[in-house]
């Protein structure tokens, strides 16, 4: 199938619009990160008089692992988000499979309850959660953040995966079971690969949720033991008590986006794996 130049130019134009829409504010953030307190308010993308500076980035890494305001939180963010995502996907896959494919009473309650939990304003829950975690000893620990992240991302993960599992034809499972496989083997060998797009979609959503969270991070941590980047941003200082550390925060935001880019780049190809022709037809 030869594609005409009209098609190419139409797509090029569409892609240009998409890139512009997505990346213009990012370019603005990058430009803020390269400005000094002198030029931060000049409203331009390129600082006047060529006053670029990499100081905002340098400051983030000054002091090494222990004293820099940024390195330890960055590692915390990566570790916590990865662990929470892995656990969430496993738990959600089990639950979603059960809800989509099996028959048992209480399905609607679980689904409805999961939704209700995700909907309750978090601001009311962080006070009691703070007290709970301090008495149990989970305060300022990885687990102390991972558990709430699971709680609030599971509903979306479950709903997404349920919508996916329902799309997979029933015959496949029955065929596997006729061949003697247990429900679990049917799940692992047949369903899971076909649900890959949904699984990776859910993984990206959970990861980004954990990555971006501020409320739990600032409430349930008190030191760099478990503090993640969004919370660490609240501790950045500018030149004085009253000056906003705009450049530093922008620089931190740029760096913190790089793992996201890597994560997404890695997973996006697997989102559109799609249903293989052989398994579906018939």
């Amino acid at each position: 199938m030869r594609r005409g130049t009209r098609e190419y130019s139409a797509w090029s134009f569409a892609m240009l619009l998409v890139l512009l829409f997505s990346l213009l504010p990012i370019v603005w953030i990058i430009s803020l990160s390269l400005k000094t307190p002198k030029t931060v308010g000049d409203g331009r993308f390129l600082p006047a008089g060529g006053e670029w500076t990499l100081k905002n980035y340098k400051v983030l890494f000054e002091g090494g692992f222990d004293n820099s305001p940024f390195i330890h939180p960055l590692i915390n963010s990566i570790a916590i988000a990865l662990i929470a995502t892995a656990i969430a996907i496993v738990l959600a896959a089990f639950a979603a499979y059960a809800i989509a494919r099996l028959n048992f009473p209480g399905k609607s309650i679980i689904l409805g309850g999961a939704l209700a939990i995700a909907m309750f304003p978090a601001i009311s829950t962080i006070g009691p959660l703070f007290d709970m975690w301090r008495s149990i000893g989970l305060y300022d620990t990885y687990l102390g953040l991972i558990i709430p992240y699971l709680t609030f991302s599971l509903p979306l993960a479950i709903y997404t995966l349920v919508a996916f599992y329902r799309e997979i034809p029933w015959d496949l499972e029955q065929a596997a079971q006729v061949d003697g496989a247990t429900p679990f083997q049917a799940f692992r060998r047949v369903i899971l690969p076909l649900a890959a797009p949904g699984t990776f979609t859910a993984a990206i959503l959970v990861f980004i949720f954990c990555w971006n969270d501020f409320l739990f991070a600032i409430t349930l941590t008190s030191s760099n033991n478990a503090r993640t980047v969004p919370a660490a941003l609240a501790f950045f200082t500018g030149e004085s008590q009253f000056t906003q550390p705009t450049g530093n925060i922008a620089a931190a935001a740029v760096i913190v986006t790089i793992p996201i880019i890597i994560f997404v780049l890695f997973f996006q190809r697997r989102i559109v794996a799609g249903l293989t022709a052989g398994a579906v037809k018939g």
Binding site: M15, V18, L19, S22, L23, P25, I26, W28, I29, L32, I204, I208, W211, N212, F214, V229, P230, L233, T246, I249, A250, A252, A253, V256, T257, I260, I261, V264, L265, Q268, I271
Partner: peptide, 20 residues
Amino acid sequence: LVRTSVLIPYGIVTVVAAFA
């Protein structure tokens, strides 16, 4: 490229995006 760049806005820390 398109898929990754579309998702980047979602990955930026919310408070930083709002401030920008």
